[in-house]
Every structure is written in structure tokens, then in C-alpha cells.
């Protein structure tokens, strides 16, 4: 591996921090960061070397709405966490025959206990994605339908998933009616994460049939279409 050569490793770390790499090269390097302490050290060193230069910018106060959105995101995440933990503890999932049915049942309960869940009256899109091999829930994705500008998906990976070296997880919108999957971007194995919906998919994602995830080469599918079968898949449910 080229990352084992200290000279090349240092050069790649420098270019990563300087910011001249392509998106794909950045993803490849970040995949290596997870497993290579030497590369992490090289990146930290370059960050320390170059970061004083970043202070050569006159401070600029961001608009108030940024802070409000950050607060919403953080509180939203906390609620999503509480809610998912509660669903999961109900133990529906492993015995339920259909995940869509299970989702409806669970969400039906949510609606009947509004006191515990102040956001329950808000309409949400929810996808419970099953691992196609084990047929058990592997990931949940939710977002607020409507709105025309930007849209964030909240993702929760259930259990401790691991990503093989030199691979990437890619999330797909499955439009339905035999139309091909469209990439929503790469995701990580982190338990809680958010993903910005690409602008051109914001108008259509609320009407998608479902979502899927495939394992792709590092950097994502080179062709823009899935290179393998869906590993996780689930249908969108409007609650």
C-alpha cells in the first residue's frame, strides 16, 4: 500500500489538509485514516502546521438562523435517539414478519402516547431498512417531508456494523415503478449520522418507494449505479 511509504504518506496527508484532492481521493484517504495511526498523525501534524493560516480571515458573524438550526438538529437527534431506543426495546423487530407493518404498529403506539413524544404530531417519513440476508432491521432513516430547499436525513445504524477495508456504503433512493436507484451519497457505520439530500433529489424523495444501501468500492460506485445487490432495503412510510 502506498500509505506505508512515509514520504508518500506525508505528501498525501499534506494534500488532504491543503484541500487539493478530489472528492474521491479524500474518501480513499479517510478510509485509510480509520486504520492507520501513522496517517492520522501525519494529518494532525499538517493541520497544526497550516491551521494558523486559517486565522487570516476577518471574523464574520453568522446569521442567527444558523444557531437555531443547530439547536433544532441537536434536539431533534436527542429525540430520535430516545424514540429509536424505545422502539427497539419493544422487541417487535425480530419477530415481526414485515418491517413496514412493524413500523406502522410502532408508530401507531407513538401517536397514542403524545406526552412522551412531543414531536409525534409532526409528520415524518420513516424507513426501516432490513438486512436482506438476516431479515432483521439494520438501519432507520427519517426526515421531515415537504419543504423545497434543503433536506436532511437522519440515519441510525442498528448494532455495530463494520465496513470492510476499501469499501464504502452508498445510500440509494429507490424511486419505484422500475425506475433505477439514484445515489443519495456515501454514509458511515456511525450509529447516528445525518445526510444532506442532494439538491436535485429534494423534490422527489418524499415520493420514493424506499431506500437501499449497497457496499461499493471506496469512493462510491464509479458508474453512478449500484454495482451490487441492495444489502439493506426498506420501504418509505409516512407517519
Amino acid at each position: 500500500m502506498k500509505y506505508e511509504n512515509p514520504t508518500i504518506r506525508d505528501r498525501l496527508a499534506a494534500e488532504y489538509v491543503l484541500g487539493t484532492m478530489t472528492w474521491r481521493a479524500r474518501r480513499r484517504l479517510e478510509a485509510q485514516l480509520k486504520t492507520s495511526p501513522a496517517l492520522r498523525a501525519a494529518v494532525s501534524q499538517w493541520e497544526a502546521l497550516l491551521s494558523p493560516m486559517a486565522s487570516a480571515a476577518a471574523p464574520l458573524t453568522p446569521p442567527r438562523r444558523v444557531w437555531q438550526k443547530i439547536q433544532q438538529r441537536i434536539h431533534g437527534d436527542a429525540k430520535a435517539r430516545a424514540r429509536t431506543g424505545w422502539w427497539y426495546s419493544l422487541g417487535f423487530w425480530r419477530t415481526a414478519t414485515g418491517f413496514a407493518l412493524a413500523a406502522v404498529v410502532a408508530l401507531g403506539l407513538v401517536v397514542t402516547i403524545p406526552d412522551r413524544l412531543p414531536t409525534a404530531e409532526k409528520t415524518m417519513m420513516v424507513v426501516v431498512m432490513d438486512d436482506m440476508q438476516t431479515k432483521s432491521p439494520a438501519m432507520t432513516v427519517s426526515w421531515e417531508p415537504g419543504g423545497s430547499s434543503s433536506k436532511m436525513l437522519r440515519l441510525r445504524v442498528i448494532g455495530h456494523a463494520e465496513m470492510a477495508p476499501d469499501t464504502a456504503w452508498e445510500l440509494w433512493m429507490l424511486p419505484g415503478e422500475n425506475r433505477p436507484p439514484v445515489s443519495l451519497g456515501l454514509i458511515t457505520t456511525h450509529e447516528l449520522q445525518t445526510l444532506q439530500v442532494p439538491a436535485q433529489l429534494v423534490p422527489t424523495i418524499d415520493d420514493a418507494w424506499g431506500l437501499g444501501m449497497t457496499v461499493e468500492p471506496a469512493g462510491g460506485s464509479p458508474s453512478g449505479s449500484p454495482t451490487d445487490q441492495m444489502l439493506y432495503m426498506g420501504q418509505c412510510v409516512k407517519t
Partner: peptide, 21 residues
């Protein structure tokens, strides 16, 4: 500030470089 700046720079660079259809 180095740690936080790196987070912002990486997000900004990813935003610029993100694949756009």
C-alpha cells in the same frame, strides 16, 4: 481552534467537491 477549524475546512471541502449530477 485547530481541531474545530479542521472540521469546518473538511466539511467545506467536501461540500465543494461533492459529486453533483
Amino acid at each position: 481552534m485547530t481541531w474545530m477549524t479542521a472540521i469546518v475546512r473538511n466539511r467545506a471541502l467536501d461540500w465543494l467537491r461533492r459529486p453533483r449530477e
